[in-house]
Amino acid sequence: MKFGSTILAAAAGLALAGLGPVYADAGDSPVLKRIEDRGVVSIGHRETSIPFSYIGDGDTPIGYSIDICGYIVEAIKVELGKDDLEVKYVPVTGQTRIALMANGTIDLECGSTTNNLTRQKQVSYLPTTFITGTKIAAKKGAGISGIDDLNGKIIGLSAGTTNEKAIKAAIAERGLDVKIVTVKDHAQGWLALETDRIDAYGSDDVLLYGLISKSKAPDDYEVVGEYLSFDPYGLMVPRNDSTFQRLGTVVVADLMRSGEMAKIYAKWFEPGPTNINMPLSDRLKTAFEIQALPN
């Protein structure tokens, strides 16, 4: 069995083993039953969702979400009393994650998936482990420190994203005169910013930090302004399995209560292996506190 953050996971395993099985009976959980029968827990992961879930230098996925999932796997082992549970990593994409969860290929998705109420008709989520939201990135010295500075300027937006809607709403609300250029994806959007097709690019702040860290001249760009939308990420689990969902919730709440979650966050984001350099925001800090439900 290959497993990324072995030490942390082992520590968690010991801690949880000390507590004993605090979860409900596995018998009424189709997912736990399936894991027990197969002797395998299948984790859906992304390949390029940096720094949440991606393939690093090795073959196995790494990242913030993958670390959290490591703790959940340990909890499943304890619950089922199977130390030799095998972990199988299954690559998923934004288009395949639902199909693979619906047909039971993956038991748990550890990626960067936004939790919303419509999607909850199709899947269930564990507590929010990351919060992103729409912000804008611009060249330093361009005189842009927020959306209000965009009057008479051009902003690029990725077609069909929440960011597009949020920024259009903000522009309308403030009565600004901003020209909007839609682009196909973030790479194209960033290119547009670099080639001066646009003055600012609007997207999820975490993606903007990522784009800046990967750009030719990271020091030339900055993420500015207030949050214009709210996009909470959560690990995704199959629907209609409250027992399995609760098991995951307990693990995540434990991590938040013990302060371990903030440490995992720091490991991946402050500045993190990809130098994304995104400090823990106040609202994510608050989210950790609020979701740290008592046992």
């Binding site: 934004g94 639902i98 199909a99 419509t118 999607r119 008709k121 899947v123």
Partner: peptide, 11 residues
């Protein structure tokens, strides 16, 4: 339609 799939997971 791809956008709807993305938003609602009802592909």
């Amino acid at each position: 339609t791809r956008q709807i799939e993305e938003y609602t997971f009802q592909g």
